[in-house]
Simulated assay, not measured.
Amino acid sequence: MKLYSFLLLLVLMAIESSAQAVNRFQDEKAIDAFFTYQPGRKRPYILAHRGGPGPADTENAIPTFQKIARVLPDAILEMDVRMTRDSNFVLLHDATLDRESNAVGAVADWSLSDLKKVRLKTVAGQLTDQQMPTFADVLAWNQNRYVLALDVKPGTDPVRVMKEVQNYNAQHSVFVICYSLADAQRVRASFPTLWLAVGVNGIGDLERLETSNLATRLIALTPQKLQPASFYDRLHKLGILSSVGTYGPNQLDEKPLPEATAGYRELLRLGGDIITTDRPQEVSSLF
């Protein structure tokens, strides 16, 4: 029995280590090549929203990231970064602990030491023995193997978050989601080679981008409602990739997969490059 357990452990370690190499994204050339716009691409990038948890998984948690990365080693792992009362960074989607854990109240009102006593719930609401990960935990786990999309929540300084990223020499395996052009410009001033993502909701936003200093190493967060192909073409002429979310009420992720399949494929056909989805494995299987 001991031999079986040992062999199983070796197999699991081999799967984990072979999914992607450590320091796959150790320099700007690697991430630039990963995100280079490719006309006629047959598969979209898959961005696992909140890590891509199923009902029995926890959001924003390393076991969930591991699960998705093993089966989709090119998936982008999205996570939500928040700051604690004592200025540490943890992962949690909501501003409060109520829905996702066995505690209540705002994350910003808790110290890191107290948050370590909190346990996470699954998407279905079942309590687990998992602790809330710190952002540093995730960077140490990743080792530049996968691209991490950092949704730095309001009230958390993205420049400070990026300084934590620098501590792990991980600035070429992440991109930062910014909530305004002003935020994006401030981050870009401190980190000129960093990839950023910013909302581009129409032609007006696109024109502002064209006259800014941001139209390089940029991902456009475009409306969930599909736009005319000319909108995506204009982004692509700037070398900007388009990300489209398919999660949330009345969106594709909420429909049975056979019913939603044509919609996902139409998204890619019109010019959407990145599908941000709650069901990354199922969506990836369609292409």
Rank of each mutant, 00 (worst) to 15 (best):
S5H: 11
F6H: 14
F6E: 14
L9N: 07
L10G: 13
L10S: 12
L12G: 08
A14H: 12
A14G: 14
I15S: 13
S17H: 13
S18C: 12
Q20N: 13
Q20I: 06
Q20E: 12
V22D: 14
N23I: 08
K29A: 15
A33V: 05
F34S: 06
K42N: 11
H49W: 06
G51E: 01
T58S: 15
T58R: 12
N60L: 06
Q66L: 10
V71M: 07
D74L: 14
M79C: 10
D80G: 05
V81K: 02
R82F: 03
S87Y: 11
N88W: 09
L92V: 05
L92D: 01
D94F: 01
A95I: 05
A95Q: 08
L97M: 03
R99E: 00
S101L: 00
S101Y: 00
A103H: 01
A103N: 00
A103P: 00
G105N: 05
G105K: 05
A106G: 00
V107Q: 01
D109I: 00
D109F: 00
D114E: 14
D114F: 07
K116I: 01
K121P: 01
V123A: 05
Q130R: 11
T134L: 06
A136W: 03
V138I: 04
A140C: 12
W141G: 11
N142C: 10
Q143L: 08
Q143W: 06
A149D: 15
A149Q: 13
P154Y: 07
G155W: 06
D157Q: 14
P158M: 12
V161R: 14
M162Y: 06
Y168Q: 09
A170V: 06
V174E: 03
I177S: 04
I177A: 05
A184H: 13
Q185C: 12
R186V: 14
V187G: 03
T193P: 04
T193G: 07
L194M: 09
L194T: 05
A197C: 11
G199A: 10
V200L: 15
N201D: 10
N201H: 11
R208P: 10
R208K: 15
R208L: 15
E210L: 11
N213K: 09
L214A: 10
A215Q: 15
T216W: 11
Q224E: 08
Q227F: 05
Q227K: 13
F231K: 05
R234Q: 14
L235P: 15
L235V: 13
H236A: 14
I240R: 08
S242H: 08
T246G: 01
G248F: 05
N250R: 13
D253H: 02
P256C: 02
L257P: 04
P258M: 03
E259P: 00
E266M: 08
L267K: 09
L267G: 10
R269T: 07
G271M: 03
G271V: 01
G272K: 02
D273R: 10
D273M: 10
T277N: 05
Q281M: 09
Q281T: 11
V283A: 05
L286P: 02
F287G: 02
